[in-house]
Design a protein around this nucleic acid. Structure first.
Lengths: 190, 190
DNA sequence: GGCGGTGAGTTCATTCATTGAACCTGTGGG
DNA sequence: CCCACAGGTTCAATGAATGAACTCACCGCC
């Protein structure tokens, strides 16, 4: 289930690695070959927030359709997402985060914390708390109070004062309320 | 010294934010506007490793000159690096990491750890240890033993078994040996 | 005082990636 | 039969990245 990736990524079409910047002997460079392209980390973010369907990514990100398709494909190839038929409606399908995708949460948490501290227009956009104890999770998604890495299902996201309380698109609206990471997004048919 | 960035980034040339993907109300998206372009995070990585001079970035990264100049400019504008005249040779200058740049270490550490775990061809490339106690630093750069975030000066980087022990370029050679983060890179004139 | 070397860039033509709009295709409902 | 919807693909136009060549200020030297 968690077999290494090297074969797949390193030997596509005979080129040395992904596309280029990885004659680099460096784990960071290798990682960025997979998730470093434009939009990719935002797709993963949405997936961790519970978004699963093509159209939901589309409207929430405002990404061009072709790019979204390409990125989802890359992420599936890299083992970050898994594409599978929807349980209820067999002709639709959904992209769900794998174990390897969940492992990107510390990265996203660190990026998010940097943004919060750097663009300090005061009001935070979202809080992420350890649901069991209410403490805000730390830089890598760990709980400073309990001292352990919080399982994603136990991370509760809630809107901060900087977040628009009435956004236009339905995905943003669904992602507003207090909810857990990974909790599948279900859009109430208006 | 750590004034917020919003003004600078948000209003360049009248466009809404950076370039695009940030009608997004999201700290991650805002962060990626600054450090999400190709090469940028590798430049920051090198800067944290102690690289300071244009030519050192150039040979170590294998980045096109024009792109390097652009990225350094972006990072200076964003307050991640500071450009200043070299102490010893007044006509040269160097790019040094600011406090805000140091704050990107948890992000880079998390990316690096994901790469290590994902491309598990076995041999790690580098270790990062808390110099005082020898423990490997955790996902966000904290010390699991001491429980606190290790100051960058106390993070010791050492080569792992997967790293080429005799690389071609002098910057890679200088970055091999056990050394501290942020320790300025000095190339011994061969 | 001319000469080559170095650090730190710019300029420019080519290639590659991204964008947005339009098109396609399978199915499910009325 | 017709329309809508999910999940794409195709295409032309734009914008960014690449690599090679060029600039330019200074520095040491003989």
């Amino acid at each position: 289930m968690n077999e290494p990736l090297l074969g797949k990524v390193a030997t596509v079409g005979g080129m040395a690695l992904g596309k280029d910047y990885a004659a680099q002997e460096c784990s960071i460079a290798r990682t960025l070959e997979v998730v470093g392209e434009r939009w990719t980390l935002l797709v993963v973010r949405d997936a961790l927030y519970g978004v699963r369907r093509y159209n939901d990514f589309l409207v929430h990100l405002g990404i061009p359709r072709a790019v979204l398709a390409a990125r989802l494909q890359t992420l599936v190839d890299a083992g970050v997402l898994e594409k599978r038929p929807c349980a209820d409606a067999p002709r639709r399908h959904e992209y769900v985060v794998t174990e390897r995708g969940r492992a990107l949460w510390p990265t996203l948490r660190a990026l998010s914390a940097w943004g919060r501290d750097t663009f300090a227009d005061g009001r935070p956009l979202r809080y992420f708390r350890h649901a069991q104890c209410g403490t805000e999770v730390g830089l890598a998604g760990e709980c400073p109070a309990c001292g352990l890495l919080v399982p994603l299902e136990d991370v509760e996201m809630l809107p901060g004062p900087g977040l628009d309380p009435d956004p236009a698109d339905p995905v943003s609206r669904a992602l507003l309320g207090p909810r857990r990471l990974l909790q599948p997004l279900r859009l109430d048919p208006v």
